[in-house]
Design a protein around this nucleic acid. Structure first.
Lengths: 210, 210
DNA sequence: TATATTTTGTTGTTTTTGCAACAGAAAAAT
DNA sequence: ATTTTTCTGTTGCAAAAACAACAAAATATA
């Protein structure tokens, strides 16, 4: 998240001042929330990391989105019309702020600092989400596993301002994120190594410019 | 776009009152804008329809997004770090409103009605965009061409509140939108017809519940 | 620290998808 | 109204990806 204000400070300052906001803690590998009904729920991840996942009828898991510290997520971003259940699963211990998007307009009380500030910041947070999603679409529309991998690696490299970077996922999860078969992806990674396009030591990848 | 205010009215009322907003007209099949530099550009499509497309090095075209009347688009939604050029191409004659996202904060003049209203409405417009993009990701993460087709058909059917609906694309464009090979998609559509899962007359599709 | 669980790496086989090429239908342009 | 262009529908073949299954390595857990 690259936003122009200090979310940490914002949460510190205001989260306790508003009685419509709930703060909850979660252990690793539990369900934080599921998108099934239209509850208008909006969440901010204060600490930890989590995935938005879908399990389809064949048991395939897809990582629809990956959230880390200060990311915004929630049902409000979805038309819950799909038949598949969407779950937010904690990957580490997490702290999460829950509130309702409609409360943004009908404020809890006049002059609630939390809601006031949040509605000021929210457009920027959501805009950031659009940017992330657009990059995701860019990746997923690549035709081959190789292009998806290279596209994603380029992204991480750009983010890190470095040809070398660390995968934020296990390779198993990376396959679910790129929506490809894991073994096929592993085969492709091996080819990329053999062709000297990348170097790989565990989760550290280096792009070798040719 | 399902938003709670009347965009048409809004454009009518305010677009002329602001000198930082430009209204331009485009013929069919021309480039409306390209996402190359960070210009903070934000656009509203007043009439017509357009696609956001990417041509990759192999000449593959991908329809990244499809815009119709009242949709919001623009460079501001992208981190233009990808190597491929993104173009917005008109599919019909179009009228487009251009302005800059940063002007949303530094208003053109105190009390400009256009910017005032726009910054009020914008979160909702952007939120709608997030929902659309999330559905797009849902589609693109489906593993097979069949699942992509059925996912998309279900979406259109839900939108139309009807088992029968009309494709907003040519079949050629649909393939580019689902990011699959056209002939492979045609083959899959034939199978879906043969298996009595769908009925198809031109661009009118009917989902046959089994 | 020992044991259980998850992740990584690999490969043969099957299935799906992409590519190429073409003819007929439909739509657009002149 | 005729010509040109785009779109649809189809197919054989090649390439890529998915599936399945397993051993070794790394992590997590008791």
């Amino acid at each position: 998240m690259y936003v122009s204000f200090d979310i940490e400070q914002f949460i510190q300052d205001f989260s306790k001042s508003c009685n419509k906001v709930q703060k909850k803690s979660f252990k690793k590998n539990v369900v934080i929330t599921s998108y099934i009904q239209k509850r208008d729920q909006l969440c901010i991840l204060i600490s930890g990391s989590a995935d938005l996942v879908r399990y389809d009828l064949n048991g395939n898991k897809t990582i629809i989105d990956h959230f880390s510290k200060h990311d915004v997520f929630g049902e409000v971003f979805y038309d819950v019309t799909t038949n598949n259940e969407l779950l937010v699963e904690s990957k580490e211990n997490c702290e999460v702020l829950f509130f309702s998007y409609s409360d943004m307009h009908n404020k809890c009380k006049p002059g609630c600092k939390f809601h006031e500030k949040l509605s000021e910041y929210l457009p920027e947070l959501i805009l950031d989400k659009v940017t992330t999603l657009n990059m995701r679409v860019e990746l997923l529309t690549k035709r081959s596993t190789r292009d998806k991998l290279l596209g994603y690696f380029n992204l991480l490299s750009t983010k890190a301002l470095n040809k070398t970077f660390t995968l934020p996922f296990s390779l198993t999860d990376l396959a679910d994120y790129l929506s490809v078969d894991r073994s096929a992806m592993m085969r492709e990674i091996k080819l990329l190594k053999d062709e000297n396009i990348i170097k790989k030591e565990g989760k550290r990848i280096t792009l070798l410019s040719h």
